[in-house]
Design a protein around this nucleic acid. Structure first.
Lengths: 184, 184
DNA sequence: CACAATAATCAACAAAGTGTTGACTAACTT
DNA sequence: AAGTTAGTCAACACTTTGTTGATTATTGTG
């Protein structure tokens, strides 16, 4: 029975939201713990109780989003098509605009985003392997990387456009481009 | 007639090579000016004579590579196919393994890499626009981003494989995937 | 409601890095 | 050989870091 103390919840929340706010304007490396705590109006000692440094903090914010996407994707059964998985990812990104604007933004960590796209890939690996059976494992790796990074490019552009298009338009586009890639 | 003083050339060279060496092991943000100068065996005051901070320095290293690629690409005449441009980029990356390993590596700045791929795109924009004429400008933008980031994915994977494949294999793969994208 | 537990605050600390200065020394160009 | 220029050196005030132990405020539970 682990009840989360309200004070702790407040502290963690205010640290997180202040960090996201700061990351809209500057790189992670330019954010100091002192500055963050001053804006969040918490004591520096409190920060160090929960996090090692700014990077540790950002990693944990990323992990939170990653886990929520992962959890949501795992409820979908494995399928031939990558479509439902991409759909799911795009929707969650749409629902978490605040965090995603920052995490996928120019100062965001691409490795973490790649991990997310990888989730969809693993789930529909059967389709990939079947359609690309004429290629070697190494080549499939290259093609997957093309697709993964390509999808990141679309998502980044979408976020840069301030989520102008509907989520379904974006996921349809990604799935179409993926099909083009696989059907040649 | 601006002759570069040999002392200056040495200083700039040793700063650059030491930075690349350090960036193989750690993020830019973890490199301190003090540390860099100690290893490079130059005085901190000398560093500050040329650079504002570590980021300014890395930006200038990136710019150097970017300009050499740009210069090289500009000698090629505009063509319908993107092939010669991609070819050129891949070759220059191959010839500058030391710098590229770092600049395209996990701690590298993807914005700068995108600018490089963009060079090839601009040069063969005619082909893109013709083949994608059924799409709106916004959609072409998305598709280009898919291609640009996808290419970065392949290049990153190639570098991660320690340049295992021949440059021509990589550029052929990129061009093929680009064709698949455009011909559907 | 009261009380024990726990969280956050505060002030102080040494240690390290920053950015700049002016006087010096060494190397380079012509 | 001489004047110019680059790099060195030591010192400076200033900021940030990470940690400490004592103190205060809030919370969950019996």
């Amino acid at each position: 029975m682990k009840k989360i103390d309200r004070r702790t919840k407040y502290t963690l929340d205010v640290i997180k939201s202040t960090t996201l706010k700061l990351m809209e304007k500057k790189e992670a490396s330019k954010i100091t713990v002192t500055e963050l705590c001053k804006i969040a109006d918490i004591n520096r000692a409190t920060f160090y109780k929960y996090y090692v440094d700014i990077y540790d903090l950002i990693e944990k914010i990323e992990l939170e989003l990653y886990n929520s996407i992962k959890k949501s994707i795992e409820t979908i059964e494995d399928e031939e098509s990558i479509k439902p998985f991409i759909n799911n990812i795009i929707n969650i990104i749409y629902e978490n605009q605040d965090a995603c604007k920052v995490l996928f933004g120019p100062y965001g960590n691409k490795e973490f985003i790649k991990k997310i796209v990888y989730l969809a890939y693993v789930k529909s690996a059967t389709e990939w392997k079947r359609k690309l059976e004429k290629y070697s494992t190494d080549q499939i790796d290259y093609i997957f990387n093309f697709f993964a990074f390509g999808s990141i490019g679309i998502i980044e552009n979408w976020i840069g456009n301030n989520f102008l298009e509907k989520p379904s338009e974006i996921s349809d586009l990604i799935v179409t481009l993926c099909d083009n890639l696989l059907n040649n």
